[in-house]
C-alpha cells in the first residue's frame, strides 16, 4: 500500500485522489446517517455531526498551531532554549531585517492606495459605456492568474540585456528606455527601486478586485442623489469628488483594507522574482526563508507572529468603519 503515501505514476496519483474523496464521502455519509434519527438522537449529537468535523479541523489546523507558533517564537532556532523576546529584538534591530520591515511598509502603503485608485478611476470611466463588460474583463483577468505566473509575465517585461551593439532588448520595459534614447536598466536587481517594480506586479493583480467591488458600489448609488446633484448644476469631476466618493466611502474602506491584508501576506511575487535577494525581501518571504531554508524555527515563528500582529489593526479599523457607516444609515 506504499502508493497511498508515495504515488509515483499518474494512475496511482488519480487512484489516491479517488481513495481520498471516497473515504471522505463514506465517513461523512456515516456521520449523517447516524444523526438522521430525529426522535432517537439528542440534539447535541446532531449539532456535533454537522459542525464537529469542521470545528475539529479548525482547532487542529489553525488554533493549536497558531498558539504553538506564538510559544515557539520565544525559543532559539531549534526550539530548545527559552530566549525571551530576543527573536523580536533581532527583527527590529538588525540591519538586514530593517530593510525587510521597510519594504513591507512600502508594500502595504503603496499597493492598496495605487490599486484602489486605478480600480476606481477605471470603474468610473467605463461605467455604462458600450464596452463595459469587455473592458472590465481585461483588467479583471490578472486575478485568475497565479502570482507566480504574474511574476513570470513581469519578469519578462523587466528582462535586461547588456547595452552592446548587436544585442537587442527582449524585455519591453528596457526596449522602451532604448527607444527613448536611455540606457537599459536592471529593474529587478538595482536597489532600492527594484522593490517598487515588484510592487507594480501586485498592483496589476489587485486593481481588478478594486474595480469590481467599486463598480458595484457606484452602480448602487441611488438615482435621486445624482438627480439632485445634477439639478444643482454639479457634473463631471465635481460630481465624482463631491457625490460619488462620499457615497461609496464604505466600499472604498473595505477595498483598501482588504488589499492591505492580502498584500501583507504575499510572498509569491518576491519569491519568484528575486527570492528575496537584492534587498527586496518582505516579512512574509523572510518567514519562509528563516523557517524553511535556514531552519531557524524561533525566528521564523516570530516573523509569523509579527504578520498576525500587523494584520490586527487593519481588521480593527475595517470593523470600526463598518460600524460607523451602519450608524449613519
Amino acid at each position: 500500500m506504499d502508493w497511498l503515501l508515495n504515488a509515483d505514476t499518474n494512475g496511482e496519483k488519480f487512484l489516491v485522489m479517488l481513495a481520498a474523496v471516497g473515504l471522505f464521502v463514506v465517513v461523512m455519509g456515516a456521520v449523517l446517517v447516524a444523526v438522521d434519527r430525529p426522535r432517537w438522537v439528542p440534539q447535541w449529537l446532531v449539532v456535533l455531526g454537522f459542525i464537529g468535523p469542521a470545528v475539529l479541523m479548525l482547532v487542529f489546523g489553525l488554533v493549536y498551531p497558531g498558539l504553538r507558533t506564538a510559544y515557539e517564537s520565544f525559543f532559539d532556532r531549534n526550539g530548545e532554549n527559552f530566549i525571551g523576546f530576543d527573536n523580536y529584538v533581532r527583527v527590529f534591530t538588525q540591519d538586514e531585517f530593517q530593510i525587510v520591515l521597510r519594504n513591507t511598509a512600502i508594500w502595504v502603503l503603496l499597493v492598496p492606495v495605487a490599486a484602489t485608485f486605478i480600480g476606481l478611476v477605471y470603474a468610473v470611466l467605463v461605467d455604462r459605456t458600450r464596452f463595459e463588460a469587455a473592458a472590465k474583463a481585461l483588467i479583471f483577468l490578472p486575478m485568475a492568474i497565479s502570482m507566480v505566473g504574474a511574476s513570470i509575465i513581469w519578469k519578462f517585461i523587466y528582462e535586461y540585456k547588456p547595452d552592446q551593439p548587436g544585442v537587442n532588448q527582449i524585455g519591453l520595459a528596457n526596449q522602451v528606455l532604448v527607444w527613448l534614447g536611455l540606457e537599459p536598466y536592471q529593474f529587478v536587481i538595482t536597489a532600492p527601486w527594484n522593490t517598487f517594480f515588484l510592487i507594480v506586479v501586485m498592483i496589476w493583480i489587485q486593481a481588478g478586485f478594486a474595480m469590481t467591488v467599486l463598480s458595484a458600489a457606484i452602480k448602487a448609488i441611488p438615482d435621486d442623489i445624482i438627480e439632485a446633484a445634477r439639478l444643482d448644476g454639479v457634473g463631471g469631476v465635481r460630481m465624482f469628488r463631491y457625490v460619488t466618493i462620499p457615497v461609496i466611502r464604505p466600499a472604498l474602506v473595505v477595498v483598501v483594507t482588504t488589499i492591505a491584508i492580502t498584500t501583507l501576506k504575499v510572498f509569491d511575487i518576491v519569491r519568484t522574482m528575486t527570492g528575496g535577494q537584492f534587498s527586496t525581501s518582505v516579512v512574509a518571504n523572510e518567514f519562509y526563508t528563516q523557517a524553511f531554508t535556514r531552519f531557524n524555527f524561533g525566528l521564523g515563528a516570530s516573523m509569523a507572529v509579527l504578520l498576525f500582529v500587523l494584520v490586527i489593526p487593519i481588521v480593527v479599523y475595517n470593523i470600526r468603519q463598518m460600524r460607523l457607516s451602519e450608524d449613519i444609515r
Partner: peptide, 8 residues
C-alpha cells in the same frame, strides 16, 4: 495568516 500555522 496561514504562515503562523505552518511550522507546527
Amino acid at each position: 495568516p496561514i504562515q503562523i500555522t505552518m511550522i507546527p
